[in-house]
């Protein structure tokens, strides 16, 4: 089973690298942040700019929770990991501003090892959730090297295990900043805030998140806008 997983990951990596070499510009993002959910989280993402309008990617978030929910009850420790496939599609462009449709489907795993705190790993409390996050992003070119983004998105989580619960839906607004340090690197900061609702009022009522990171560019630089930063929850 493990060998099959490894082979799958290797095939995916080869496919991504092949795409990158042949067709697309590659963007590797690494960021660290904090949020209402997590003491600290880190995001690792690889994105392919397929053409000037379409960008697809894969993103992995690993987090140390401080206020998450399993079965609509809070957890204040443990682990959380989310794998998602962010997609952006440019809808409109003028001299200084462009508009992008954004969609991020994903899956989230979280849990606590030893939830009864008896110092024996005899129990694991865990959950799995499906994430859907549609939205709109506006990119503003303050200068050639400095862009910022705003917009709105609606991250939504459906817990599917251990029980099925509509966990949370938020209306988040974003403020992102991206500065091109060199031809191959971009420094960025992302923030989001917004009201949230779900699980009969038992899950998050408000969300916020802040992170900083570095983007490295690979391949052709003529496609798309490497200073466009996708929101991440």
């Amino acid at each position: 089973m493990k060998q099959r997983k490894n082979a799958g990951l290797l095939a995916l990596l080869t496919l991504l690298l092949g795409f990158n070499t042949l067709f697309a510009q590659g963007l590797l993002d690494l960021s660290v942040g904090t949020s209402i959910q997590d003491q600290v989280f880190t995001n690792l993402a690889y994105r392919l700019q397929m053409n000037p309008r379409l960008r697809i990617g894969a993103e992995l978030q690993l987090a140390a929770p401080q206020y998450r929910f399993i079965d609509a009850k809070p957890i204040r420790e443990g682990y959380a990991s989310t794998f998602s496939l962010p997609i952006t599609w440019q809808l409109h462009q003028n001299e200084k501003i462009d508009l992008h449709f954004f969609f991020r489907p994903g899956v989230r795993f979280q849990g606590i090892i030893d939830p009864d705190n008896n110092d024996v790993r005899d129990e694991i409390l865990s959950s799995t959730a499906i994430m859907l996050d549609p939205g709109l992003i506006v990119n503003v070119k303050a200068s050639e090297r400095l862009h910022f983004q705003s917009g709105v998105s609606f991250p939504t989580f459906f817990q599917v295990r251990p029980s099925a619960i509509f966990e949370n839906n938020s209306t988040t607004i974003h403020a992102n900043l991206a500065y091109e340090v060199s031809k191959r690197s971009v420094l960025f900061a992302k923030t989001l805030i917004g009201p949230a609702v779900g699980a009969s009022g038992d899950s998050q009522k408000f969300v916020w998140s802040a992170q900083m990171g570095l983007r490295l560019k690979f391949g052709s630089s003529s496609k798309g806008n490497p200073l466009l930063m996708e929101p991440s929850y």
Binding site: L91, L99, F101, L132, P134, F154
Partner: peptide, 16 residues
Amino acid sequence: MKNILLITLLILTQFL
């Protein structure tokens, strides 16, 4: 509500 938001986004996408 989520469905309405998603449908609105998709319609807006088509318009744009």
